[in-house]
Amino acid sequence: MSSPRKSESRAGLLFASPWFLGFLVFLAYPLLASIYYSFCDYSVLKAPVWVGLSNYRELWRDDVFWITLKNTGVYALFALPLGVVVSLALALMLNAKVRGLAFYRTAIYIPSLVPLVSLAVLWLWMFNGEYGLVNVGLKHLGLGSPPWLSDPAWSKPALVVMSLWGLGNAVVIYLAGLQDVPQEMLEAAELDGARSWDKTRHVTLPMISPVILFNVIMGIIGTLQIFTVPYVMFPGGVPARSTYFYAMYLFDNAFRFHKMGYACAMGWIMFLIIFVLTMVSLRASEKSVHYGGS
């Protein structure tokens, strides 16, 4: 190894050192501690006491754990694909060179800038069965007025609808990805007589498939962690635990029920689920994702 190589290595490690430290202190240690606590009776007020698999056993037969897991899964199952499709469609349209783009972009992006607490409170009111703007609108269209907030069958759909207003970030990332699609390829396709939908399907989508994958994975991680909005809108996951999500139950166990060990066990299960889902999406995408150049 030559001396410049050595000094480059040294510089490299030095430059990366904040992250090594951060990784060890804020990730590796908490992750390991979290495994340990998950086998303990622990409440932060008292020293952890080893209880073996007891937390996991309790989780296995904890109905609420399964309910929150199911709620989170159902929510993700609807919010995620809907989010991907809508944000992609919006991004494709926003990429068309039409007038007033700045306005459209801003309009679609700003709802994701509203603080989540305000957003939650605003929607709480928009969804009010009688006074709420949503139902007033639906009534005008003759679509009836569902009791969004008080009926377990409607509370999750309400959250899914709301999630669309937070798509701004995903749209922006898609838009950025679309800027990378070479114009020549689109024009070549046009010369071959491709219609705009064919162009989109055969040129644009494959070109931005890595971005789609990226958004899907970030979406999985984000949706499975849903917390703030239901925490503000539906304290305790009312009605009938229909909006009780995994992260809320985890938070409650840690800070309301003082069961930190139990919460850690839940955290690890969440991590494993996200890990598996990410791996599955990566594997599933291997064939369909097109990496330019490589």
Partner: peptide
């Protein structure tokens, strides 16, 4: 449910 959803 519909009735209650209209409560302020």
């Amino acid at each position: 449910q519909t009735f209650r959803s209209g409560f302020g």
